[in-house]
């Protein structure tokens, strides 16, 4: 039993870290484009912004459990199966990309508009403004965003367990729900709570250390 829970814990950690990683790779550029393509952004492209924005809204409005099922054919195409750890990751990444994109968008929106103007007058290219101003200035916010994404994905990963996605959620459903082993159910919950706490406090610690706006 302990072995099962340890494996489940590591599976969940693996699923969450991998899907966070891919969701960042996908969501970060989308979030950046959502900001710079705006009408008064640094590289206005209103149609592009509208299209991206409605894609993001559409995916975000689908309940995750339905998204997982709707993605079955796509998931099978990518990893060959529609259940298991790999399949979970695919669904979580698709579900989390729009989430990350919106978080990135609001993190970048916090950057001093006058500073952006100043960078333009200094002859910075759009790429330089994104990399050297927008991203640099929002480092603490971006670190907090990673932890928020991971925490959200711990919950979503458990949901993916419903359809045999592996990890703690899977165990909770198979043993706790179907075999009435309440203790297993409780233990998975305890482990997840601890996991969330650890993610939260370690990332907060790093974010605070990186925040130069604190005296």
């Amino acid at each position: 039993m302990t072995e099962l829970l340890i494996k489940g814990t590591f599976d969940t950690l693996y699923i969450v870290s991998m899907s966070t990683l891919f969701a960042l790779i996908g969501g970060l550029p989308i979030g950046v484009l959502l900001v710079i393509w705006q009408k008064n952004g640094i590289a206005p492209f209103v149609y592009g912004e509208k299209i991206l924005s409605s894609f993001v809204n559409t995916v975000r409005s689908i309940p995750f459990i339905i998204l997982i099922i709707a993605l079955f054919p796509f998931t099978r195409l990518i990893v060959g199966r529609s259940y298991g750890i790999q399949a979970s990751i695919v669904a979580l990444v698709v579900g989390a990309i729009p989430f990350v994109a919106r978080l990135v968008e609001s993190a970048l929106a916090e950057v001093d508009e006058g500073l952006i103007k100043a960078a333009i007058t200094m002859g910075a290219t759009s790429w330089q403004i994104v990399v050297k101003v927008y991203l640099v200035e929002s480092v603490p916010a971006l670190i907090r965003l990673v932890s928020l994404t991971m925490i959200t994905l711990v919950g979503y990963a458990a949901m993916a367990g419903v359809v045999g996605g592996g990890g703690l959620g899977d165990i909770a459903i198979r043993y706790g729900l179907h075999r009435y082993q309440t203790d297993v159910m409780l233990l998975t919950i305890v482990i997840m709570v601890i996991m969330v706490q650890l993610i939260q406090s370690s990332f907060n610690f790093i974010a605070n250390r990186q925040d130069r706006r604190r005296p």
């Binding site: 001093d112 006058g114 103007k117 100043a118 640099v136 200035e137 480092v139 990186q210 130069r212 706006r213």
Partner: peptide, 11 residues
């Protein structure tokens, strides 16, 4: 250019 609000990189 020097601005009233400084506009420095805070990070």
């Amino acid at each position: 250019i020097v601005f009233q609000g400084y506009h420095l990189l805070e990070q």
